[in-house]
Computed example of a mutant assay.
Amino acid sequence: MTGVEIAVGYLCAWLVGKARRVAGRADAEVDRGLDAGMDRLHELVSAKLGADPALARAREEAGAGQGEPSERTRQRLVLALEDAAETDQDFAAALKQALAAVREAGPVDVTFATGTAKATGGATASTGVVRPGGTGSGSATAEHTGDASADGTGSRASTGVDYS
């Protein structure tokens, strides 16, 4: 995955999170460093792309409650950012720095529309974000997760965010 694709992923996560905060559904505990880095990335991209239709569409989709942008919107954002980075070296450098700041703040794990997790006979099955050994750092979000079922002694199944 290129840096631009990662930037689009972060940007989309920011847009979805912003739509939720506006709607009053923000998580009570926000990682401030990560939030600041995501804000900076959004400001940088928004300033460069301005009224670009791909960015406008991503905002519309996030505001409408979509968990992530459509594949077409994501592709259009990637192309718009690639074009901006190719034609403006200062922007490319600033984008690289903004991405580094987000990464330093911790991982941003976002998963949407996971499938079903089913474990039998002592097995473990997980879909979504899995961070073994504790809570980890950075934020994790899961939306529209599938069903989880576990049958038998020692079986464990989870969808969404799993910190075990």
Rank of each mutant, 00 (worst) to 15 (best):
G63Y: 05
K18C: 12
V102D: 01
T73G: 07
T141I: 08
L15E: 04
R156F: 11
V45F: 06
A84H: 03
D31K: 09
R20F: 08
Q97C: 11
S46Y: 08
D83L: 13
V78D: 04
V161G: 01
K96N: 15
Q97A: 15
Q75T: 14
L55H: 03
A58W: 02
V110G: 07
G146N: 00
R32L: 14
L79V: 13
Q75A: 15
T159A: 05
A98S: 04
V102P: 04
V30W: 07
R21G: 10
R59Y: 10
R72A: 15
A84K: 05
S164N: 02
A101R: 14
L77R: 06
A119R: 00
R32F: 12
I6M: 15
M1R: 02
S70T: 06
D151K: 14
A101Y: 08
V30E: 10
R21K: 12
E29C: 13
D39P: 07
G152H: 02
R20D: 13
V45L: 08
T124Y: 09
G133L: 00
P132K: 11
A19N: 03
E82G: 09
D52H: 14
A140G: 00
D35P: 10
A94Y: 02
T87G: 11
G122A: 05
L55S: 02
L95V: 04
G3R: 08
K48V: 05
G50H: 02
W14D: 06
G134L: 07
R25T: 08
R59P: 06
D35N: 14
G115P: 03
K118S: 12
Q66A: 14
V45I: 12
P132G: 10
K96F: 11
R76D: 15
S139F: 07
V110C: 08
A51Y: 09
E86W: 11
S70Y: 07
G128R: 01
V110Q: 09
D83H: 14
S158Q: 05
A150I: 03
A62K: 04
Q75C: 12
A64Q: 13
D109F: 11
G24R: 02
A62L: 07
S158G: 06
G128C: 04
A142Y: 04
A80L: 03
Y163H: 13
A148K: 02
A51K: 13
E43D: 13
L55C: 06
G152W: 01
R72E: 15
D83R: 14
R57P: 06
T114G: 06
P132V: 09
D151F: 10
A94R: 09
G154A: 01
G67P: 01
E5K: 11
S70M: 07
S137D: 12
T141E: 15
A58T: 02
S158R: 03
A84M: 07
E5I: 00
F112K: 10
L44D: 03
G121E: 12
Y10M: 08
A56F: 04
A58M: 04
R76Q: 15
D90F: 11
H144F: 15
F112N: 10
G50T: 03
D162Y: 01
H144I: 08
A100H: 00
T116D: 08
A93T: 15
G128P: 04
V16H: 07
G67W: 08
E71A: 13
A92T: 05
E61P: 03
R74P: 01
T127K: 09
E5N: 09
D39L: 10
V30T: 09
K48S: 02
S164H: 04
V16P: 04
